[in-house]
Design a binder for these strands. Structure first.
Lengths: 193, 193
DNA sequence: GTTACGATGTAGTCAGTGACAACATGAGTC
DNA sequence: GACTCATGTTGTCACTGACTACATCGTAAC
């Protein structure tokens, strides 16, 4: 009748509930103790799974990057060359819009400051994949004369920036954001076109 | 001999010290009480000037936007047309690199979530100025056939994104960041050129 | 001059938080 | 059936943001 002594899958439950809370209240109001209360577990139980709050956020970020990489990988399958690069960029922005809370975690300096080796490695791998795609696209005739570093910086800035703008961090005016929604592809194509 | 009862300019001292602390430790470890200790006043003194922590961050953000607008305005004076637009974008990124902590505050969803009317108004005004510059540049022959919304979204995304990348939020690898430093102008010129 | 007032700083307090240590529970193993 | 160890609990500590009541002092009216 009573709740069982062991939760069963507290770790994942914490991650899921934390992501919910984050999208509602932001990282500043995420509290381990509130999570524990929400899940009907004692205030110190989360510490068995995440030694510190930073660890929890790091784990969330790892889940986020995994989801992001999966989304861009899937988008990449359909095409090749520049179109592949374009598809990945669009998928990135789409993913960010669909997972705004997760995206904000990945862009939060206070979270990434404590990034684990695993997390930084995932991000590095992601960046390397993008560099490879650029090289391939260039070898197939897309902007062959530009320096790869310039294209990479531009690609990363543009995609990250568009995601940031579209998830409402910059101009929180919803009218502007919804207006811009229809322009995302066109904006990206100023680069890919 | 003893410290005077009144600090003299506690408000500005708080702002200055807070910005220092932010660049060292991030917003998560900024504490009103620690600020009070640093400045040798009682733990509740800051509340006379900023009713809540959110108010303090908001005030910092207002200082930041003011400084940012001043920097881009000054850069704009020298040129006109697309060159003016380009100069403003470069000034934006330069400012962000020189004031990374302030820039991160302006990009922190947990801060902007509580943005005051004054702050949002400043940001709106800034956005409108950018839209005007785009219109002027277009009337002078720069990308005349593109939709202004597309250009605006692209401009904002690109500048915000470049600033985010260059201030180390995304790829924290300092090698990458310093490599990219020489490429900033070239990257922006893929749009302005 | 002194008196009243308002702005600024102080002292004390409260609930909420992250972190830690010591202990309890129970599923799986030999 | 005893052992073990991951998982959850209880208790505690220092710290924080926020609030209230009080102290100090510049200023300006009288």
């Amino acid at each position: 009748m009573n709740a069982p002594y062991h939760h069963g899958n507290l770790r994942q439950a914490l991650l899921d509930r934390a992501i919910e809370t984050l999208s509602e209240k932001g990282v500043e109001h995420l509290s381990l103790r509130a999570l524990a209360r929400d899940l009907g577990v004692s205030h110190a139980a989360p510490l068995r799974h995440f030694a510190t709050k930073a660890d929890l956020l790091n784990a969330i970020a790892i889940e986020g990057v995994g989801s992001l990489v999966a989304a861009t990988d899937q988008a990449a399958e359909a095409a090749s060359g520049v179109k592949r690069l374009r598809a990945m960029a669009l998928a990135y922005v789409d993913w960010a819009m669909a997972n705004a809370a997760l995206h904000q975690i990945l862009r939060n300096p206070d979270v990434m400051r404590h990034a684990s080796d695993d997390l930084t490695k995932m991000l590095t791998t992601f960046a390397e994949a993008q560099r490879r795609e650029i090289a391939t696209a260039q070898s197939q005739g897309w902007r062959p004369d530009e320096h790869p570093d310039v294209l990479f910086l531009h690609l990363v800035s543009l995609t990250a920036g568009t995601a940031v703008v579209m998830t409402g961090d910059v101009y929180r005016d919803p009218v502007m954001t919804s207006l811009a929604k229809d322009r995302v592809a066109a904006s990206l194509d100023l680069f890919f076109g």
